[in-house]
Amino acid sequence: PLDILFKELDEAIQEQQYKKAIRVCNKVLSQSVNDVEATQCKVLCYMYLGSFQDAVDTINKSGPLKDSFVFEKAYCLYSSAKYTDALKETTSIQSKPNNVLELEAQIYYKLENYEKTIEIYEQLLSQSGYSQSSELITNLCAVYIDAG
């Protein structure tokens, strides 16, 4: 029966019906506590709905999965303008993947720590995958403008 629920969940996500998707996630989780994919989808649905506190609550209640949601939790705190709390999450990560670096740069920008923001963006720009990123270059320009 779980496979039928996951089919339903996938369809709801494809149709961007996130509230419906959360209801399906809850059905899965009632049968399969701490189900990885259902928990991930539930967190993401709340984030896509802009319900960041609900996403954080879901993460905090996710038991053994909690540690796998550090990026998502930091993003939710960032989106709730809790920049110092968000930074505590990202700085707790030892070897930072690029998505964490991107987020950390955004947090530092909001905290008006332009030096740190520039440092991270220059580090990312030195990687081949980012050298053509117009969005990253736009952000770097914004930092230089605000830094004066």
């Binding site: 994919e37 989808c41 984030m47 993003y75 998505n99 955004q106 969005e135 952000n139």
Partner: peptide, 21 residues
């Protein structure tokens, strides 16, 4: 304020459910 993209949101992706369906 100058334009500033939310690059980190691009990494907020749903997991693949292919193996669960």
């Amino acid at each position: 304020k100058p334009m500033f993209f939310d690059l980190a949101f691009n990494s907020c992706e749903f997991p693949s459910l292919e193996n669960r369906k």
